[in-house]
């Protein structure tokens, strides 16, 4: 036990200092919280507007999509809070921050992840949580053991999957540097995809955002399972239970991407 505390102490020391730094600028922190919440609300509005125009979209109604949005945005915002700054890797590369990580006796990725935390994104997670609760209530989801287990599994797997996306993107940014926006297509595009009814996607999108980057598994499929909806040919409702498998796959992808990126940094680029 004492050993584990010693292993975690460096990370705790860095994170604690980050939290203190953010909270010390109260006015600016409050502003960040407010704007972060507004982002969540606008994103919900974006989806809601579509469902106000038509009754059902891809087999889901407004109530169902609010549940999908709730699960997806809660998971994404929490992952974003802890892993979001992996997106700043190009800045870290230019400032030489990464070289400094090499001089410390912890794994690079662990140092990068724990080098910062964005508490303001918790405000957006709050919007996701409200949508999730509202979705559960308006859909009259029964509080059965199965549903509770599925919900917990979905949120935890979703957080893991989205976190993996940030890490994967970090690995790719070693190659892309100025072209880092390309990874936004899959990280933020992935978030957008996760809040949609995946049944409207054509074959290529199913391959990319259904399976390769398993976005459909973060919220859409678990919601189908919970609501007892059938889903489509490629993404049937019962797949919701496989959310943890998707999360594991996402992490395989992420760690492979990170490894290739670091190899490139040490070996090819400079």
């Amino acid at each position: 036990m004492g050993d584990r505390t010693a292993v975690l102490a460096p990370y705790r020391a860095v994170l604690a200092s980050r939290v203190r730094a953010q909270r010390s600028h109260r006015a600016s922190f409050r502003l960040d919280l407010g704007s972060s919440m507004l982002v969540g609300v606008v994103e919900l509005a974006e989806i809601a507007v579509l469902f106000l125009t038509v009754d059902r979209l891809g087999g889901l109604d407004l109530a169902a999509i609010v549940l999908v949005f709730g699960i997806a945005d809660l998971s994404f915002s929490l992952a974003d809070t802890v892993f979001g700054h992996c997106d700043n890797l190009p800045t870290y590369l230019k400032a030489g921050t990464l070289d400094v990580f090499y001089l410390r006796p912890q794994p690079l990725l662990a140092q990068l992840v724990t080098s910062d935390i964005s508490l303001r994104r918790l405000a957006r997670a709050f919007v996701g949580l409200v949508a999730l609760v509202a979705g559960l209530v308006v859909n009259d989801v029964a509080w059965s053991l199965g549903n509770v287990a599925l919900l917990v599994l979905a949120v935890l797997s979703g957080i893991a999957t989205f976190s993996a996306m940030f890490v994967w993107a970090g690995g790719m940014q070693f190659f892309l540097v100025d072209g880092y926006e390309a990874t936004n297509a899959f990280v933020y595009g992935g978030r957008y995809a996760a809040t949609q009814p995946a049944s409207v996607w054509g074959r290529p999108l199913v391959v990319v955002f259904g399976f390769f980057f398993p976005m459909a598994f973060t919220a859409y499929l678990p919601a189908l399972t919970m609501l007892g909806l059938p889903g489509g040919d490629w993404l049937p409702g019962w797949l919701g239970w496989l959310a943890p498998v998707a999360a594991v796959w996402a992490w395989v992808l992420a760690l492979a991407g990170w490894r290739i990126g670091v190899r490139h940094y040490q070996g090819g680029g400079g």
């Binding site: 579509l50 125009t53 038509v54 979209l57 891809g58 892309l176 100025d178 072209g179 880092y180 926006e181 390309a182 990874t183 936004n184 297509a185 899959f186 933020y188 595009g189 957008y192 995809a193 949609q196 009814p197 409207v200 996607w201 054509g202 290529p204 999108l205 955002f209």
Partner: peptide
Amino acid sequence: GGLVANATFGLLKVAVLFAV
């Protein structure tokens, strides 16, 4: 990079807005 992002978002929007 921007082009990749634009095109991907474009395809996702095609899927959902065409469905609408």
